[in-house]
């Protein structure tokens, strides 16, 4: 199959790659660019483990084609911490034991950050509905919700 050349920006860096036209952005990130922090739980948009930001919008990377990333800005879990400092959400997930196996964690973090960017003071219900597209089978969500609420409080304090 002929491959298409794509230029894009990932976590602030200019990136170029070749991909097949039917390849998903998730496959490109994971297999071509070795950014394996985004996970594939379903490949059909139902689990949110592959959540990334595309031009500031939360999307499932498994539902985006690699070629669609041309001239766009992508943010992944790999870009969330800055240097040796964790993002408050990451820190709060650790403190609240909001991960057990951790496979869903990158997706939850990316989705939660998208929420707090848009709504710094969400109610519990708002958090629950915003994260309804992310499946976690281990935790029952309780500690995840608490971690997000706590991070929101802390981030508001900092602002």
């Amino acid at each position: 199959m002929t491959q298409t050349h794509v230029s894009t920006t990932i976590n602030g860096d200019k990136v170029e790659y070749l991909c097949e036209t039917d390849e998903t952005l998730l496959d490109v990130l994971r297999d071509t660019l070795s950014l394996t922090g985004s996970k594939e739980g379903c490949g059909s948009g139902d689990c949110g483990a592959c959540s990334v930001m595309l031009d500031g919008r939360l999307v499932c990377a498994c539902l985006v084609l690699g070629v669609e990333a041309q001239d766009r800005k992508i943010e992944t879990i790999e870009g969330m911490a800055s240097g040796d400092e964790l993002h408050p959400l990451q820190q709060k997930f650790l403190e609240h034991a909001a991960l057990q196996c951790g496979i869903c964690t990158p997706g939850f973090l990316v989705a939660a950050k998208a929420l707090l960017d848009e709504n710094p003071d969400p109610t519990e219900t708002e958090v629950r509905y915003w994260l309804a597209g992310n499946l976690c089978r281990c935790t029952g969500y309780d500690k995840i919700i608490r971690a997000v609420m706590d991070a929101a409080t802390e981030m508001r304090g900092q602002a």
């Binding site: 922090g37 996970k39 911490a81 997930f93 650790l94 034991a97 951790g102 496979i103």
Partner: peptide
């Protein structure tokens, strides 16, 4: 805090499909 936590919140932990 768990010792493997940071790897997992930064996407660096290697799960089954993450090795090539």
């Amino acid at each position: 805090l768990r010792p493997d936590g940071v790897e997992k919140v930064t996407g660096r932990a290697k799960f089954g499909a993450d090795l090539s």
